[in-house]
């Protein structure tokens, strides 16, 4: 780990999102190297891969909602693109 990468947790191996666990909103990499959008706050979700509109958003290994827009890998996933 380097301080240049954001701490995050993938709750279940089946998930297509991860949750960031730090305040490093100015960093653009997750631990493990995936590029991440700037400004994602603590506790918010990031797409681990592209999620097409209509596809389930998976966290805890279950569908917590569906993508309402195409979501790019590394993008912030929240009420603006998931319901």
């Amino acid at each position: 780990m380097t301080p240049q990468e954001r701490i995050h947790v993938v709750v279940d191996p089946r998930d297509n999102v991860t949750t960031v666990l730090d305040q490093g909103t100015g960093l653009d990499r997750l631990q493990g190297g995936l590029e991440v959008a700037l400004g994602v706050p603590f506790g918010h979700k990031v797409a681990l891969r592209p999620i097409a509109r209509g596809e389930p958003v998976i966290k805890y290994g279950v569908a917590i909602g569906r993508a309402t827009h195409d979501i790019a890998s590394g993008a912030h996933v929240h009420v603006h693109n998931c319901a």
Binding site: T19, G43, Y60, V62, A63, I64, G65, V79
Partner: peptide, 22 residues
Amino acid sequence: NIEAGLTTLVEKSMGAVAKVGS
């Protein structure tokens, strides 16, 4: 909850349900 990053009701409820495993 939404400000804290929770997007849907399922996501919120799973926070507790996650302890049952898979």
